[in-house]
Design a protein around this nucleic acid. Structure first.
Lengths: 192, 192
DNA sequence: CCGCTACTATGACAGTTGTCATATGGCGCG
DNA sequence: CGCGCCATATGACAACTGTCATAGTAGCGG
């Protein structure tokens, strides 16, 4: 959960991802990042010569892989997995994270998209790719539950849409109700 | 669609809302706004003495009411409205807007939430309230279609979650497919 | 010891941010 | 006219942004 490895570089990437979740790309300053990561400022231009874009890109990539691994963890823990149960587990993750952190942080990928989709093509691509990294294990899991590839793809997209939207609503009203709601409502659809 | 009334004040609010959709709150500069609104810079401190927070708040309020009116327009146009058809109409609005504008602009409310939910309580409240303004006519419509108040509320929440998330995914991959997908998948659930 | 590389440290740059103080128009009203 | 108010104009402010140039340190192989 904390920094994967403990070098300054990894800390910077990790901290960046967390800051993105709070205030988006534009709202996250590099100086603030290195301070929070307890890293030297010079490391920025050393490890990320391409500047903020590269750092944000790697933060998104990190977040994508982390989320994907989390999906696999859930699947491993389930004795009789179904699409609805997987979705419920993911939603529950977010629900407790939001509640515990007082709705401080949302999804870094969504933040990147909303801030940069039209102003920074590099970041947009990174966000898109992170999204795919996250979605792939979900799609695969659904396929292994008997859905056709086409159907698995559709259902995983539906999951992510509902989840991302629910996170936004939850943070707006400071209440996890939307998350619980989508899990409940979509359950039958997913397991149909 | 363009500025409601044509005074400088209204133009500023409208332009702000559109800029929010592009780059979020932090990414939208006030000088840039007044230039795009063709308004004098002095009008900012004159009409919005409480500063950026007030302006963003009014932009969100404007957006909320606009979206609510749009819902009513759709309902008025339908001869035999159902929840799924209403949802499809709303999604279609967004779909063409995204496509026409090359995925340049998303939802201003989501942008405000993601940028400010944890850093600016005033804006967060404005976003929450705009969201309610938008959701209310939908809930009412669903109720008038025979759903219980409780059910109508749940379904309208589900709609907004799926929509907001689909907008994010669509902008990430520059494709309206997620929007069309949620409309298709959620149709049966909504009309059940 | 030298030289080399990896990393750190710092200071400066030009640009932008939101906000404020102040001054100037314009126009109706008494 | 002349007072006064609404609106506009403009300049400055300190704080911050991302980026870069430059210098420094440590450690290792030769």
């Amino acid at each position: 959960m904390s920094a994967s490895t403990h070098g300054p570089r990894e800390r910077i990437v990790y901290v960046t991802a967390q800051r993105l979740r709070r205030a988006g790309v534009t709202g996250t300053g590099l100086r603030e990042v290195v301070v929070a990561a307890d890293a030297p400022r010079g490391s920025l231009q050393h490890y990320f010569p391409a500047g903020k874009d590269q750092l944000v890109g790697e933060a998104l990539e990190w977040a994508g892989t982390w989320a994907a691994e989390r999906v696999d963890e859930h699947l491993a823990r389930m004795r009789r997995p179904t699409p609805a149960r997987l979705f419920a587990a993911i939603v529950d993750d977010w629900s407790t994270d939001l509640a515990v952190r007082a709705f401080e942080r949302g999804c870094p990928v969504a933040a990147a998209v909303i801030d940069c989709a039209d102003t920074n093509e590099a970041v947009r691509q990174a966000a898109d790719s992170a999204l795919q990294t996250w979605q792939r294990p979900i799609t695969d899991a659904l396929a292994s539950m008997g859905r056709t590839p086409r159907r698995a793809q559709a259902l995983s997209t539906l999951m992510l849409c509902a989840l991302e939207g629910a996170i936004v609503l939850a943070r707006a009203q400071r209440d996890t109700a939307p998350l619980r709601l989508v899990a409940r409502e979509l359950g039958p659809v997913l397991d149909a």
